[in-house]
Design a binder for these strands. Structure first.
Lengths: 336, 336
DNA sequence: CTGAAAGCGCTTACAG
DNA sequence: CTGAAAGCGCTTACAG
């Protein structure tokens, strides 16, 4: 069954496509089309179950009312929460969302950027992997609307949502030190990302200020891929070399959860034994680690602002204002 | 900066658009275009950074190589896991994914169905809310490719991924009874969904077979909206009326997690006090509820099969075969 | 108050 | 081996 088009309605009503189009896009009054005709058109459209072909409209207008979102993983709770906020904010503004995971693979990411661009999304929100810069550069050169979050390139002039990673980490670890921890390990991942470096930098600054030597054996770096397996080796290594470790700072909540599973399996009463701190959290921390200190990511804000900044640059008919950077803060729990 | 089009390349090379198009779509050899010309075209395209406008192609071919996914919530771990599988399977087959949450709101869902259709997705995967049938019916009548998972309409002739909810629930609760539970509560939600009814039905069948009367006070139904708050009232009510409840069957892992938070806050040692069973799980159950019995959703299979069935019906040039229903099983842990 | 016509950027049947 | 032309279904400047 063929879908009904403007032409079908026009023919049936012996009107021009132009008139039908004006009415159905809500410009009937502005164009001074008689009420009678307007009603006729609208009724006929409803009767024939007319749904506009937005592909055709997009080709004509050069806009699709669709945004693209590229994240490392859709099922990661942090990213899926942000994806939800983004979709809701987009939806409120009349935009749909195309979503894809890069799986932290630079090549896949570049392909996704190209595909989204080719498919005509009006703008892209991305949590980029370090390496994939060429395609992003090209988009920036084209003045294509794009904004990054969670990760960013300081040398690229693009809009980004940035978070005070170093500062928050610094506060968290300082708190552990004040609570009396002498030997704090940091468990991190993706060391090529500035975001992660900043978190470890905050940790290092604390130790320095407290006059504690930085011990490389206490810095556990877990591969992003297969982290569930890899973290076991990382933790094994720490306990082997530094059996009297008394604190853990996790740079992501995923790492903390995996570590809890590890501790639990080994029969380690981690809540009594260690001072704990973590970037971001999930509600079950309440049971799993009631004394942990966390810096909560402003998920809702990140999602909303990403979309808002993007839409601003899409909808401002004037010159595209790239390079707008927004700095957001963590919320610390319990307040330190 | 205008994007380069086929025409630009054709003009620069003094060739026809036709030739350029044949070469760039990989049909140069088949059309017998000389190697020399082909190289010329490809080099020029690369040089000018040509990226095809897929909107134009879509308008012409009536295909967008894009699928639509509609789920109740993007950040719910169950749905985001499935979304990930779907995106990966789609991607492997050359399809992009548009995603949106219905928030279990039938009106929003109908709008999304219309929007996706208008935007020209080639097919839709949906976990539908009970009420929203009109738009789905219309799509089925149009022979538009659509498949549902997690939830379904037995009276509609559409492709669905169905799971043996009743059977798995039956096995889980039977196990609790065998372990000696006399007074088992069921905590559920969305009572209008067949999926949820089946789970409660499994529970009821167990009680009947065991000769236990069904006690409505032990059936706790949590609203989907604001479940975090509502579940507190539901549990309060159960403990008030049936203080000697000794088992809990949760029809979703979200409900179990919230209940654990509740128990924890009340200082109830739930692992010792209750027999526990749940549909689906998360890895932290290992720590939170080591003795719980779970029926694991075949997430990977659901995602993959949804896409495969959809693509079959999209790509089969012959008649559209709707109405294909696939039955999948749960995995029970520990095996009962 | 209404319409004829061009154009968005592709693909492809048809022609040579 | 290559090209002129129609068409996908809209929008909109222009004309009356």
């Amino acid at each position: 069954m063929k879908r009904t088009s403007l032409k079908d309605i026009a023919e049936k009503l012996q009107l021009s496509q132009t008139t039908v189009s004006w009415v159905l896009t809500g410009n009937g009054d502005r164009r001074g089309i008689s009420k009678a005709t307007q009603d006729l058109v609208r009724n006929c459209a409803a009767e024939m179950n007319y749904q506009p072909n937005l592909i055709a409209r997009s080709l004509n207008l050069g806009k699709t009312k669709t945004l693209g979102l590229i994240i490392p993983s859709i099922s990661d709770f942090f990213y899926s929460s942000i994806a939800m906020e983004i979709e809701q904010t987009a939806s409120k503004n009349g935009y749909s969302l195309m979503i894809a995971s890069s799986e932290s693979n630079p090549e896949k990411e570049e392909n996704l950027l190209r595909t989204f661009r080719s498919k005509g999304v009006d703008g892209i929100i991305i949590a980029p992997t370090k390496k994939s810069k060429n395609e992003i550069k090209r988009l920036i050169k084209e003045k294509f609307p794009i904004v990054s979050f969670d990760r960013f390139f300081p040398d690229l002039e693009m809009s980004s949502i940035v978070i005070d990673n170093k500062e928050s980490s610094y506060k968290l670890v300082r708190h552990l030190i004040r609570k009396g921890c002498k030997k704090i390990a940091v468990i991190t991942t993706n060391p090529h990302l500035i975001t992660m470096c900043s978190r470890v930098d905050g940790y290092k600054q604390d130790l320095e200020e407290a006059g504690i030597d930085i011990n490389p054996d206490l810095i556990g770096c877990v591969t992003y891929d297969k982290y569930e397996l890899n973290i076991i080796n990382v933790l094994d290594a720490i306990f082997e070399k530094e059996a009297d470790v008394d604190g853990f700072f996790f740079t992501t909540h995923i790492l903390a959860l995996e570590a809890f599973l590890y501790f639990n399996k080994k029969g380690i009463n981690f809540n009594e034994k260690f001072g704990l701190a973590c970037i971001h959290s999930v509600s079950t921390f309440e049971i799993l680690a009631p004394y942990i200190n966390v810096a909560e990511m402003p998920v809702k804000e990140i999602g909303e602002k990403s979309v808002n900044i993007l839409l601003e640059s899409i909808e401002s008919k004037k010159k595209n204002r790239c390079g707008k950077t927004l700095q957001l803060g963590f919320a610390l729990y319990p307040p330190l």
